[in-house]
Simulated scan of single mutants.
Amino acid sequence: MNERIRVPQIRLIGAEGEALGIVPTAQALEMAREAGLDLVEVADREKPPVCKIMDYGKFKYAQSKKSHQKTHQQKLKEIRVRPKTGDHDIETKIKQAKMFLEHNDKVQVNVLFRGREMQHIEEGQRVMNQVLEALVNDCKLEMPAKMEGKRMVALLAPKASEKGGQASAKPKPPKPPAPAGTAPIGGPAVAAPAPKPAAPPKV
């Protein structure tokens, strides 16, 4: 960078990205100084090396920010509630879920049932709907609520992960899942009755 560039001439790229051809290094350095910028080597293996006039401080900041974004690995976070969880505690869980989504992590919402609570799945469904409706503007519904053993589970993904950056449509409140041991809703389709044969023409 700047005076550390020892070669006599370089291939220069201007501050706006324009190609300025091969110029003496001293001349390129003077051009960078006049613009209040730096002369930075961007391709040292080329002959002659390629240098660009730029703000080195901003360049390093952009590189570090880009590197930080690449190193973030999406994780699966969980929030857990009960059918009898109070509204205040539910709001706390919703805030946690929003924070996870803002950090580009997925969120699994779990409603846990114990003992006789399995006989009142609709109470857990009410809590699940309350959470999903509060987060509808912060996520997309990747997996609707369904029963897995003694818990009801839904999976949310951050909107930032959607292609094209389009906001997802508001998910419909999930249907109450079928209790364990029952056939799933929407079983095999029933065939329509065959049409009656046409009457023979009268002679």
Rank of each mutant, 00 (worst) to 15 (best):
E133K: 00
Y56T: 00
L12H: 10
R33A: 02
Q108H: 13
G21L: 12
E41V: 15
G165L: 01
N2D: 14
K163H: 08
K75V: 04
D55M: 05
V23P: 13
M128R: 02
I53W: 07
P158V: 02
Y61I: 15
V7C: 12
K172S: 14
A32H: 10
A32N: 10
K175D: 08
P8I: 05
R11W: 10
L112D: 14
L112P: 03
K66C: 06
K66A: 14
A169R: 09
G115D: 10
V190Y: 01
A154T: 09
Y56V: 02
A154H: 08
E34M: 14
C139I: 11
E46T: 10
Q74D: 00
K52M: 15
K66S: 15
M1L: 14
E133P: 00
C51F: 04
E34C: 13
Q130I: 08
V111H: 01
K98L: 01
P158E: 02
K98D: 01
A199T: 08
E162Q: 06
V40Y: 12
E142K: 14
P48L: 07
I13A: 05
G181R: 07
H103M: 04
V203T: 15
V23F: 12
V50D: 03
A32G: 09
P193H: 00
E117W: 09
R4W: 06
A32P: 07
Q130M: 09
K106C: 13
S161G: 04
P201T: 15
E18P: 01
N104H: 12
E3C: 03
M118T: 07
E3H: 12
N2I: 07
G36L: 06
I121L: 15
G21T: 10
R4S: 14
D89W: 05
G86E: 14
E162P: 00
I22T: 10
E3K: 11
R151E: 11
E117V: 07
E34L: 15
K98H: 02
V190E: 11
I13F: 09
M152F: 10
L39W: 02
P174G: 03
G86C: 11
V136I: 03
I5D: 02
H68K: 12
H120L: 03
Q119V: 02
D55Y: 04
I121C: 02
I53E: 06
L76H: 09
P197Q: 12
Y56D: 00
C139L: 12
T85H: 06
K170F: 13
E91K: 13
L135Q: 05
Q130H: 12
T92H: 10
V7L: 05
K58F: 11
L155I: 06
L12V: 11
G124H: 08
A35L: 15
